[in-house]
Nucleic acid binder design. Structure first.
Length: 839
RNA sequence: GCCCGGAUGGCGGAAUCGGUAGACGCACGAGGCUUAAACCCUCGGGUCGGUCAAACGGCGUGUGGGUUCGAGUCCCACUUCGGGCACCA
């Protein structure tokens, strides 16, 4: 201990010498860290690239970090948990690949650059070096030969390459649409950057703006993204699968064609309730759709429509989301014809219909859809019920949307909802007026960003040839130096000002062209990085398909639930695209997924503004790496949040010191024959190993630690007042503790291993084998219940026969007094644990 | 509003299949070691009653009901906390 006065240290050393001659007598976490780090650097116990390695392969992956400053408590938890899994499988004899890299592109680097006038790359690489050093000290079992940074041209080269493959197949395309716009930062925002309608950076209300942007056609994969989740059942948290299902949002219904009165082209609507078609009393198109503008053109309502649209565009996202907002809209003085009954329905434009879902137009059935009803009541439009119900929606203001018998619906009258849907789809199909259809909530992925620090989009715009892909041999398109550019937000990409970089000749016609000035969303980077780890420096492709066949898919992925939707969905999408390109033979990238919770403080997320940030570096300095890691792992189930206020790294350290002293106290030789040792101690040891093994494999790491603690308690007692320090069973137990602890507290485990006379590294020493004979108890306690209440306890042989146990139980005084003279009504025997007597 | 998940001592949490509720730890208390303190070692504790202490008994896993010989675990209703989605037709 660093603060221990000198004279005390000497006293303790004297005592140690008199006991057994151990070189160190005090558990000193910092001494251990200094002692073992260089040894591990030398041994590289977690290198995984040897082609001659015969061990079975296992790919364990932690979500890679964004390099914003040094590691924090969240990292400490995530990497401690991932490390337990990786180190466990190494001990079990697997060839574990456990790589790490940096998700190094992104806005914080650019913000820091603007603020301090330095190059984003300088800030980024400095942080990476700092985090790398911290991870090394934190004893993460990473394979340091596989490090990658997504901001390296050798990495984003392949972002561009994959983008071009998608572009060639029509999966990457540019279109104009309404996007989230931050008026302060003058930039487009991704959906995930809009928090409660506010810009996550500057908190200004987000509005919509029509811009031409690049998209990836993830909606083409909606069906497969949904269906392939079957493979992940039981292997991914149910919660994540559910969130993904909801996000994709499949719905089934029908598309119905409506003729515009006096028009030529029909308009199609999507509805999940085609059975209510006879209840349609008006028609609504999204105010910001092209169709609305076309219909308004030349109509008496044109001026009104134009000012309404302007109003809608100005409306902040926050207001738009408010639930009790009044419905607004404009009557376009145009009509559509209801295909089933020929009725003329007035067409309205409103912002409650979304331009980018379905067809951007709906048939309104106010009696059976709350939104339509609200709108109808606002503008005095007719309401016609077509499903029988007790209440009249026109009077109550509450739409009846449940099941019921159809009425006022011609051929559908008297049918149930289900059969009416079936029937109407048949009728529409026969008349060529519609068909059954499926729709998804999922939208195409907007990937272009007006930012500097990202992957340039490898497209050249040419006035003759249009969008021309940069030839593959010219990749990567590297970022121009930041020094000459103004990175401050101004609504267009900073790259636009890099004239020399931007103006190029068109690869197709040789005429003047301009590079696309936008960069890619950083989620592109993380959508395939797990494949790049296989060959992080490969020059002629993103990865080697043959190597991918050996290692992929990732056996165990570990990361925060914050990425439950976006990152995991995008990575699954990319994997399916690569499958279609013939580059991989699997269609799901992550076989098993473990979501760890967050580290919070006093119930809320740590943040500077709350002033409740616990600094990892302080905790490490005070308690040592192992104690912090152990605290994280022992605090509770990995998927639950950890409240640091409830965690005791001091207690963890106390336990580690206790374990360490047990190893130090062992006096037998390393080759002592355990089978001659004390049987109860041996039983405790083997039971602890068996339980811990089971617990680790089911992610109950806290339980594995508890079993290790129990074993240490048994060993402490055995040494002090039982079998004694020379008993071989005590050595066997201490060695088991070192091996169990090697997953959680690598320094302590290594030091114990050395104290026990073994060579490093304990991390590769192998998992102790369990002797089943020792796991079985010699005697178990059997409870005798009378009507389900415990009245007596018996010590019995674990293999006792049911009859025998029954007799024993019936002969107890408790049973006798309960039964009296007669026969018991019922006796339930569950040998060897329980007998329940019902008198 | 819709969809999920949870609720166990002062606290974090354990508890395969419905079968001894509260493992392990934190905090706390008592004792031992020590001139003393810290460290360390041992012991204690759900709660109410009972007792010098114990034995022993009643109650007890958010609330109310149900199924069962037996429920923290299964079913129904509710309370409450947390998460996701949110005008998706």
């Amino acid at each position: 201990m660093r603060g221990t006065p000198r004279f005390l240290k000497e006293t303790m050393t004297d005592r140690a010498d008199s006991v057994g001659g151990a070189t160190e007598d005090v558990y000193d976490a910092h001494r251990m860290q200094e002692r073992w780090l260089p040894v591990w650097d030398e041994l590289q116990p977690f290198r995984s690239g040897d082609p001659k390695d015969a061990r079975e392969k296992m790919y364990v992956l932690d979500m890679f970090p964004y390099p914003s400053g040094d590691l924090h408590m969240g990292h400490a938890e995530a990497y401690a948990l991932g490390d337990v899994v990786a180190r466990y499988w190494v001990q079990r004899g697997f060839n574990v690949m456990h790589p790490i890299g940096w998700d190094a592109f992104g806005l914080p680097a650019e913000n820091a650059a603007i603020k301090r006038g330095i190059d984003p790359s300088v800030w980024t690489y400095e942080n990476i070096e700092q985090q790398k050093a911290s991870m090394r000290r934190y004893a993460c079992s990473f394979d340091w030969d596989r490090v990658l940074n997504t901001c390296d041209p050798e990495y984003y080269h392949w972002n561009q390459w994959i983008f071009l493959q998608m572009f060639k197949r029509g999966l990457a395309y540019r279109r104009a649409s309404q996007v989230n716009w931050c008026p302060t930062d003058q930039t487009v925002l991704a959906n995930e950057q809009v928090v409660n309608g506010l810009c996550e950076r500057c908190d200004s209300p987000v509005t919509k703006k029509k811009l031409t942007q690049w998209y990836l056609r993830i909606t083409d994969y909606a069906e497969r993204l949904l269906d392939d989740m079957e493979q992940l059942e039981e292997l991914w948290p149910e919660k994540v699968l559910l969130m993904q299902r909801n996000w994709i949002g499949r719905s089934t219904g029908a598309e119905v064609e409506f003729q515009i009165d006096g028009g030529v082209e029909p308009v199609t609507v999507y509805t999940t309730r085609p059975d209510t078609l006879f209840g349609a009393t008006f028609f609504v198109v999204a105010a910001d759709s092209d169709l609305a503008a076309e219909l308004a053109e030349g109509s008496p309502a044109q001026d009104e429509f134009v000012s309404y649209l302007a109003e809608v565009q100005k409306t902040s996202e926050m207001d738009r989301l408010s639930t009790d907002r009044k419905k607004t809209g404009v009557f376009l003085h145009r009509y559509v014809i209801n295909p089933v009954n020929g009725e003329r329905l007035p067409i309205w434009a409103s912002d409650y219909v979304l331009a980018d879902y379905g067809t951007g137009a709906i048939m309104a059935v106010p009696a059976h859809d709350q939104r339509d009803l609200d709108f109808a009541r606002e503008f005095d439009l007719p309401i016609r019920a077509v499903i029988a119900a007790d209440e009249d929606p026109a009077l109550t203001g509450v739409a009846t949307s449940g099941d019921g018998v159809l009425m006022n619906s011609g051929p559908l009258d008297g049918l149930s909802k289900e059969s009416a849907i079936e029937r109407i789809v048949e009728i529409l199909a026969e008349n060529g007026q519609g068909e059954g259809a499926t729709n998804y909530r999922l939208r195409d992925w907007l990937i272009s960003r007006q930012r500097y620090w990202g992957t340039p989009i490898p497209i050249i715009h040419c006035s003759n040839c249009g969008e021309v892909p940069v030839p593959e041999q010219d990749l990567p398109v590297e970022l121009p130096p930041a020094a000459d550019l103004d990175l401050s937000p101004k609504g267009t990409s900073p790259l636009g000002a890099a004239a020399e970089w931007r103006n190029v000749t068109c690869p197709t016609c040789g005429g003047p062209g301009q590079r696309d000035a936008d960069t890619m969303d950083t989620f592109v980077d993380s959508s395939w990085y797990f494949l790049r780890f296989l060959n992080p420096h490969l020059n002629d492709g993103p990865f080697d398909p043959a190597v991918a066949k050996e290692w992929m898919p990732v056996d165990q992925y570990v990361g925060g639930v914050t990425h439950a939707i976006l990152h995991l969905l995008y990575a699954r999408f990319f994997t399916k695209v690569l499958y279609d390109l013939g580059m991989v033979e699997f269609n799901e990238p992550f076989t098993r997924l473990l979501n760890q919770g967050m580290v919070v403080m006093n119930g809320s997320a740590m943040s500077k503004s709350r002033g409740n940030v616990v600094r990892l570096s302080d905790e490490l300095a005070e308690h040592g790496v192992d104690a912090v890691r152990l605290s994280m792992v022992f605090a509770g189930p990995p998927e639950d949040d950890i409240d640091w206020a409830d965690v005791s790294p001091a207690g963890a350290k106390r336990f580690l010191a206790r374990a360490w002293r047990v190893a130090r106290d062992v006096t037998s030789d390393p080759d002592a024959d355990a089978s001659t040792g004390d049987r109860p101690v041996r039983q405790a040891t083997h039971r602890a190993i068996a339980d811990a093994q089971q617990a680790v494999e089911t992610f109950r790491f806290n339980v594995a630690v508890a079993r290790t603690m129990e074993l240490v308690n048994v060993l402490r007692k055995a040494i002090d007042s039982g079998a004694g320090p020379s008993d071989p069973a005590v050595r066997e137990g201490a060695e088991a503790v070192a091996l169990l602890l090697s997953l959680v507290a690598p320094y302590t485990a290594e030091d114990m291993w050395a104290e026990l006379g073994h060579e490093p590294s304990v991390a590769r020493a192998g998992w102790p084998s369990v002797d089943e004979e020792l796991v079985r108890a010699d005697a178990v306690t059997c409870v005798v219940q009378i009507k389900g209440k415990v009245r007596h306890r018996l010590e019995v042989d674990p293999d006792i026969a049911e009859n025998e146990l029954r007799e024993l139980a019936l002969n107890t005084a408790a049973a006798q007094s309960a039964i009296g003279d007669g026969e018991p009504q019922r006796v339930i025997v569950r040998a060897p644990r329980l007998v329940n007597i019902v008198p």
